[in-house]
C-alpha cells in the first residue's frame, strides 16, 4: 500500500502540490458560492475552452523545459490556420473536399514546423537568447500574417469542418479529444523518449549534456520544431472553432500559457516540470473563469484572478519552504 502511494507520489512529482491544491480550492470555493458550478454545464464550457489554451500551453512547455521560451506560439498558430484557409480557398472554398482539408492541415503542420526549425537553428547554433529569437519570430510572423490578410478576417470554409470545432464524440468535444491526445503524446515524449530526457538535461545544463555525448543542437531544433507543430494543431482547432482566421486571434493567450506552465510547477529556468500538473493547472484556470462567469464576472476579471492565483501559489511555495527550514532547524 505504502509503496503504491510512494509510486503515485513519485509519478506525480513535487510539481503537483501547487496545481492540486489550487484545484481543490477552486472546486470548494465555487461549489459553495454557486450551486450551478458543479454541473454538466460547467464541464461543457471548460471542455470547449480548455483545448485552445491547452494546446498552446503544450507548445510553450517544451521550450521552457529547455530553459527557453517560445513567444511566437500564437502567431505560429495563426499562420498555420491561414495556411489551411489558403489551401481551402484556392481549391474551391466552401465546396472544397475533405482531401483538400487534410492536405491543408499537413501543409499547416509543416509551416508550424518550419517556424520552429528556424528558431531552433538560430538558438542552437548562435546561442542567442530564446526570448529574443522567438520574439523577433513573433514580430515577423505577425507582420507576415497582417501583410497577407491586410488585417482582415478570412472565412468561408466547407461545412464538414464545423464538427471539428464544435462536434462531440460520445459526449466529449472533438477539440478536447485532440487536446487530451496531445497531452498524452507530450507525457510520453517527456517521460519515455530520449528527446524528452535530453530536454530536461539541456534545461539544467546544456554544456554538461553536450559533454555527455548528447546532440544538444539536434535536440533544441527538435524541441522548437515540435513546439511549432503543436502551434499548428492549435491553429487548426481555432480555425475550425471560429470558422474564420484572423491574425492576432488568441494573442492574449501568449502570456497565459507561460502563467499556466509556472502554475503547473514548471521551473522558470528549465530542467523540471511535468505535463500532468500543467494539465491540472490549465483545468484550474478554466474552472476559475467558468466559475467567475457564473457569478457574473467577465473574462477580464478572470484574467486578473489568474494572475492573483499564480502570485498566491508562489507565496504558498515560499511559505512552505520557510516552514520546512524551520522544522529542520527545530529538529536539531
Amino acid at each position: 500500500m505504502i509503496s503504491i502511494l510512494e509510486r503515485v507520489k513519485t509519478a506525480l512529482g513535487p510539481e503537483m502540490a501547487g496545481p492540486g491544491l489550487a484545484f481543490v480550492a477552486v472546486v470548494l470555493v465555487f461549489g459553495i458560492a454557486s450551486p450551478q458550478f458543479l454541473s454538466a454545464a460547467t464541464f461543457g464550457s471548460v471542455a470547449f475552452q480548455l483545448p485552445e489554451l491547452g494546446l498552446l500551453t503544450l507548445a510553450m512547455l517544451l521550450p521552457i523545459l529547455t530553459g527557453g521560451l517560445n513567444l511566437a506560439i500564437t502567431f505560429t498558430a495563426n499562420i498555420a490556420g491561414l495556411t489551411v484557409a489558403w489551401v481551402l480557398r484556392e481549391n474551391g472554398g466552401v465546396d472544397a473536399g475533405i482531401g483538400i482539408f487534410i492536405a491543408g492541415c499537413l501543409l499547416a503542420l509543416m509551416v508550424g514546423a518550419a517556424s520552429g526549425v528556424v528558431m531552433g537553428l538560430v538558438i542552437a547554433f548562435t546561442r542567442a537568447h530564446p526570448i529574443l529569437v522567438s520574439l523577433s519570430m513573433m514580430i515577423f510572423l505577425r507582420g507576415l500574417g497582417e501583410f497577407l490578410t491586410r488585417g482582415g478576417d478570412i472565412s468561408g470554409f466547407p461545412a464538414f469542418m464545423g464538427p471539428i470545432g464544435h462536434g462531440s464524440i460520445a459526449g466529449i468535444p472533438v477539440p478536447l479529444i485532440v487536446f487530451i491526445a496531445c497531452v498524452l503524446g507530450w507525457h510520453v515524449l517527456l517521460g519515455r523518449t530520449k528527446l524528452g530526457f535530453n530536454t530536461y538535461m539541456i534545461g539544467s545544463n546544456l554544456e554538461a549534456t553536450r559533454y555527455s555525448g548528447i546532440n544538444t543542437r539536434k535536440a533544441i531544433v527538435l524541441v522548437y520544431t515540435l513546439s511549432g507543430v503543436m502551434c499548428a494543431i492549435a491553429g487548426i482547432i481555432m480555425l475550425a472553432r471560429f470558422n474564420s482566421v484572423r491574425i492576432g486571434h488568441g494573442e492574449s493567450y501568449l502570456l497565459i500559457t507561460v502563467l499556466a506552465c509556472f502554475l503547473g510547477g514548471v521551473n522558470p529556468f528549465g530542467g523540471f516540470g511535468r505535463v500532468i500538473p500543467v494539465f491540472v493547472a490549465l483545468v484550474v484556470l478554466q474552472l476559475l473563469s467558468s466559475g467567475l462567469n457564473l457569478i457574473g464576472a467577465n473574462q477580464h476579471l478572470a484574467t486578473a484572478v489568474w494572475g492573483i492565483l499564480l502570485v498566491g501559489v508562489m507565496i504558498l511555495r515560499w511559505v512552505a519552504s520557510r516552514i520546512k527550514i524551520s522544522i529542520v532547524r527545530r529538529g536539531s
Binding site: K194, F197, Y200, M201, S204, N205, E207, A208, T209, Y211, S212, G213, I214, G271, F272
Partner: peptide, 19 residues
C-alpha cells in the same frame, strides 16, 4: 559545470551517456 548535471537525479546522470 561539465561533468555532471548537478540539479538532476543521480539515476539520470548515470544513464545519460548510454540511453
Amino acid at each position: 559545470s561539465l561533468g555532471l548535471i548537478q540539479p538532476q537525479a543521480i539515476a539520470d546522470n548515470l544513464v545519460i551517456a548510454s540511453l
